[in-house]
């Protein structure tokens, strides 16, 4: 039974219950750090949180939480060794936070079939939580994209480096194109999408906007639906390892460019300032949120978490006045 905090009593039955997926175009962006920190920030707010290491193949969230490798993992569920996901749910040193460890050292699990993935999403949804955070593998593997699309909120972590930005755009494009492929049931449409995936395609289709136009021309009903769906979707951007004001304002520029070029919506949900405490905490098998709760990264994460919960964004004005 939950302790009856005032905040919980107030939120009552209509409390949020959401699955958040966190991805990044490339490795080394601090995605797992951001994920675990957001989870701990949510726990601090009295939320019931489950962290799922969905980096199938290279799981290490347990390490980010200062835990030893966990014997039960997603692979036990995926391979059918355990019947219920609840059996692989393990407690963490942090009350309110539970972990489903990833499928380490099980290469065959890294590419589950579609039906297996649907079963997993369904099983995840049946667990008891306020927030379930899916830490996805870096890159644009299909299963990563599918988890990203299946979540209530899709969060993309970048660092202010050309390679990370470049891959972030590749990631976004892949996510939306994958979605459009899934919606395009007819063979003819599906072929159009696949053709468009090639950057050198003959039709000059480079953005989500372009592809919708092409599909709408072939099938107006599909075009209408896609326009509506894609208008309702949004990617939430997090800039990690911010060292300068330029790094920080990067999020605004990315949002503006991606909206106009791809024709999709992006929220600049937050940034995390660079600080050695992140490295120090990792070395000591500690978490920044608990060991350095007043450090700038921890405060940035708290703000990010609030923004994610309430669909808020970083305001340009608040940034400019601090300049």
């Amino acid at each position: 039974m939950k302790p009856l905090h005032l905040s919980e009593a107030q939120t009552g039955d209509d409390r949020q219950r959401e699955i958040w997926a966190i991805g990044s175009g490339k490795g080394g962006t601090g995605k797992s750090f951001v994920t675990t920190s957001v989870a701990l920030s949510l726990v601090k707010l009295g939320k019931k949180v489950i962290l799922v290491d969905a980096d199938l193949g290279c799981a290490n969230l347990h390490t980010c939480l200062g835990m030893h490798p966990v014997s039960q993992s997603l692979s036990d569920f995926m391979s059918g060794r355990v019947a219920s996901l609840a059996d692989v749910l393990v407690p963490t040193p942090y009350p309110g936070l539970k972990l489903i460890s990833g499928a380490h050292d099980m290469l065959d699990i890294a590419n589950p079939t579609h039906s297996r993935k649907s079963a997993l999403m369904k099983a995840l949804d049946e667990l008891e939580f306020d927030y379930l955070l899916l830490d996805l593998g870096a890159g644009t593997a299909f299963n990563t994209l599918d988890f990203f699309l299946a979540a209530h909120k899709a969060i993309l972590v970048v660092v202010p480096e050309p390679t990370a930005i470049e891959n972030a755009y590749r990631f976004i494009k892949s996510v939306y194109f994958r979605y459009m492929r899934a919606v395009s049931k007819e063979l003819k449409l599906r072929q159009l999408v696949e053709e468009a995936m090639d950057p050198k395609n003959q039709r000059g289709v480079h953005s989500v906007h372009d592809l919708i136009e092409v599909l709408a021309a072939a099938d107006p009903a599909v075009g209408r639906r896609l326009r509506e769906d894609i208008n309702a979707m949004r990617v939430r951007l997090v800039v990690n390892q911010v060292r300068t004001v330029d790094d920080l304002t990067l999020g605004f520029a990315m949002r503006s460019s991606v909206e106009k070029y791809f024709g999709i919506r992006m929220d600049y949900s937050g940034y995390v300032e660079y600080d050695d405490v992140v490295w120090k905490a990792a070395r000591a098998h500690q978490t920044v949120m608990h060991e350095y709760p007043y450090s700038s990264p921890a405060r940035c994460v708290d703000r990010l978490t609030r923004n994610l919960m309430t669909n808020q964004q970083i305001e340009l004005e608040s940034v400019v006045t601090n300049r």
Binding site: E161, P162, Y169, R170, K200, H206, D246
Partner: peptide
């Protein structure tokens, strides 16, 4: 030269 749009635009766009 902009970091924000690195790798975003394709071709002649």
């Amino acid at each position: 030269n902009s970091l924000a749009t690195y790798g975003l635009f394709v071709g002649e766009d």
